[in-house]
């Protein structure tokens, strides 16, 4: 699977945004001008939806059983693009007839998440760095082996492990970081934020308490995902309380 991975380095911003916008324009144009074409009728048919959904379900099952990572290969991305495209056509088709809040929230929410997930993938950066107590670091190592240089140095001022009473099992790991003049506290489940980067407490020297592993994440499309999540949540609540 490694060799089939899509090389996202050429697809990063602004290419990602251009491709994403082109995708949306394609949905709008086909809906506006091509609704009598053969391809439009084929794409919006229930059969095509079932086939594409089944392919995605089967690929997820393969991943869920074997642990193979197919989601970053064309095998998965093509059906996912198709799924999002059909979803877009169906939303516009329905909206042109009548407005239904539950339907709109559920389908548009899912479309927005799928869109941000597919086109935003190339802009997601994640790396890890080891920082010793008192030391500082500005290079994170990505899973691909490449380095991820930051414009700033992260200093580990202090670190603290909180243990369960009378136990050697850690309850929580705290790190006091300093970036330029800003002091940032991070612990597990409570990340810090600096200049568009999220800083996560990822690992810890549990033996001697001398260093931490900090996970650095840049995820510029996340706000769009949260919009989709909010819409889907509202859609789900409407579904729960709606009477049929």
């Amino acid at each position: 699977m490694e060799s089939m991975q899509i090389n996202t380095s050429q697809l990063a911003f602004p290419v990602s945004l251009i491709l994403g916008t082109a995708f949306l324009i394609a949905i709008f144009s086909l809906s506006a001008f091509g609704s009598s074409t053969h391809i439009y009728k084929m794409l919006t048919s229930i059969k095509t939806t079932i086939v594409v959904t089944t392919i995605i379900v089967l690929l997820l099952i393969i991943e869920g059983i074997t642990g193979m990572q197919i989601q970053r290969t064309w095998i998965f991305v093509l059906p996912a693009l198709m799924f999002a495209f059909i979803l877009g056509l169906v939303v516009l088709k329905r909206l042109s007839k009548r407005f239904d809040l539950g339907f709109t929230m559920n389908h548009t929410g899912l479309l927005i998440i799928a869109w941000a997930m597919i086109f935003g993938a190339a802009d997601y950066r994640e790396g890890r760095m080891m920082i010793y107590k008192g030391g500082s670091e500005n290079l994170a190592l990505m899973e691909t082996g490449e380095t991820m240089p930051l414009d700033f140095h992260i200093k580990l001022k202090d670190l603290l492990i909180d243990y369960y009473p009378d136990s050697i099992t850690p309850r929580q790991f705290y790190s006091d970081l300093q970036i330029n003049d800003k002091e940032i506290k991070v612990s597990v489940n409570s990340p810090g934020r600096y200049d568009g980067y999220m800083l996560y407490q990822s690992g810890y020297d549990t033996k001697n308490g001398q260093y931490i592993i900090l996970q650095i994440v840049r995820d510029p499309w996340i706000l769009i995902v949260w919009i989709g999540v909010a819409m889907l949540s509202l859609g789900a609540l409407i579904m729960i309380f709606r009477k049929i």
């Binding site: 379900v57 997820l60 991943e63 869920g64 059983i65 642990g67 990572q69 489940n189 996560y200 994440v217």
Partner: peptide, 24 residues
């Protein structure tokens, strides 16, 4: 997941099965 692991969807086995279940 975003708060704990840095990503909202990690393509973890349990997540994939949850998605499969929901889709069916």
């Amino acid at each position: 997941a975003k708060q704990a692991w840095g990503t909202y969807w990690a393509w973890d086995a349990k997540e994939n099965w949850a998605a499969v279940t929901w889709l069916i």
